[in-house]
Design a protein around this nucleic acid. Structure first.
Lengths: 133, 133
DNA sequence: GTTACATTTGCATCATTGTTGCAATTAATT
DNA sequence: AATTAATTGCAACAATGATGCAAATGTAAC
């Protein structure tokens, strides 16, 4: 699906910043940082615009944020449009790449008595196939 | 174990800031934010000192940081001294409290071919027993 | 194509978290 | 009590994020 279509589906205005972000993010196998997206983008946008675009796209479940560490934030496109219950990401400790994992992973969450489960964010740390060699 | 002992065991200098942080964190059932720790602390320390203390204590596996969101960071005491493989935390979406979960939870991590597992950070979001009522 | 209006952008400004360099202070050892 | 290495406080800085407001832009109606 093209970026414009995505925006239309969500009844969002078709602005070049939003369109660009979606294009960059959908064309990457890995989650990208703000700077990585900025570099791949044609236009030069103000940081505020950038953030507000991310926020809007996040709120519409078009993309999601992965907080590896509070100084290491990445963004990835939501392949499934529905709000997922499990967000599983793999972080390579060597090359620092982040990849959304889509392997089947039905975990059991044994919470203490009285606690209710809404969703789980899972960040698996290790080495990716390239760095493991 | 007392704070001083903890510091001695790790051959760390016994400074009041470190000692205070350990005391506050060990006496809480929940993970605490920087400000929450600061409020409970007697002395008034410079932010830099505070951060460097956290960093040192983290590097020595005395406490660990839980990044709920990059603007919502909490610290908790490591009950097990060994570097755990699974870090499981529960975040209450209502009261925003964070609790370390110690329930048995041997998950299977089906990573893509060639990927190696080192550790997993799991943040379960939901409602705690108090807020669920 | 032009107009009208609501949305979005860019700029200024501010808050929070985290980092570094350096001189002064402090803890632990002798 | 003296020595020395580690730690503290201060200043300065970087990154992420948020808000208010006027100017610019997208979209829909004409």
């Amino acid at each position: 699906m093209k970026a414009v279509e995505v925006l239309n589906n969500h009844k969002l205005k078709r602005t070049s910043c939003r369109e660009g972000i979606i294009e960059v993010v959908t064309s990457s196998d890995y989650a990208l940082s703000e700077n990585e997206i900025k570099e791949k983008l044609q236009g030069n946008y103000d940081r505020t615009t950038f953030y507000r675009s991310f926020k809007t796209l996040e709120e519409h479940n078009i993309l999601h944020k992965i907080v590896v560490d509070n100084q290491n934030i990445k963004y990835a496109y939501n392949k499934s449009t529905s709000k997922e219950i499990e967000h599983i990401h793999f972080y390579c400790e060597k090359c620092q790449s982040v990849k959304c994992i889509e392997t089947e992973m039905t975990n059991k969450y044994n919470l203490p008595e009285g606690y209710s489960f809404v969703e789980a964010d899972i960040l698996i740390k290790g080495l990716c196939s390239k760095c493991k060699l």
